[in-house]
């Protein structure tokens, strides 16, 4: 089975993807992660305005038989939360890199410490 790993993004070992959009970064979970979990039935996200520290858990993704924490790949205040996935958690399965995004963080920090697509692909093999 092959999983989508878009270029132009960075990845965390804990299976989050990170995409810079001007002064914010958008965070979600990877295609591999959603597939491992199976049908996602519930997503818990923090409120906008909270400030996250790199490496701390900020949300939970649940399938029927498994739960997974989602970790902040960088530090910064939460600029936006994708409320759509709270009502329709299946979006995370259907479009993990698009409509299934989770939060946006305000940060200028470098993303260089995170995995590039090749490194992430190696990790999940």
């Amino acid at each position: 089975m092959t999983f989508e790993i878009p270029a132009q993004r960075r990845y965390a070992e804990s299976h989050e993807w990170i995409l810079r959009r001007d002064d914010v970064v958008r965070v979600g979970i990877t295609d591999f992660a959603q597939d491992e979990l199976g049908d996602i039935v519930f997503v818990e996200l923090p409120a906008a305005g909270e400030t996250l520290e790199e490496g701390t858990e900020f949300g939970v993704v649940e399938s029927i038989k498994a739960i997974s924490d989602v970790y902040a790949p960088v530090s910064g205040p939460i600029a936006a939360v994708n409320e759509a996935i709270l009502d329709r958690p299946e979006l995370v399965n259907e479009d993990p890199y698009g409509e299934g995004w989770m939060i946006e963080l305000e940060t200028d920090d470098s993303l260089d410490h995170l995995l590039d697509p090749d490194q992430y692909e190696e990790q999940i093999q």
Binding site: D39, V41, F42, E62, S63, I64, P89, E90
Partner: peptide
């Protein structure tokens, strides 16, 4: 028959 647990939880 086989029961859909996903929709029950969603």
């Amino acid at each position: 028959r086989y029961i859909d647990q996903t929709s029950a939880a969603r």
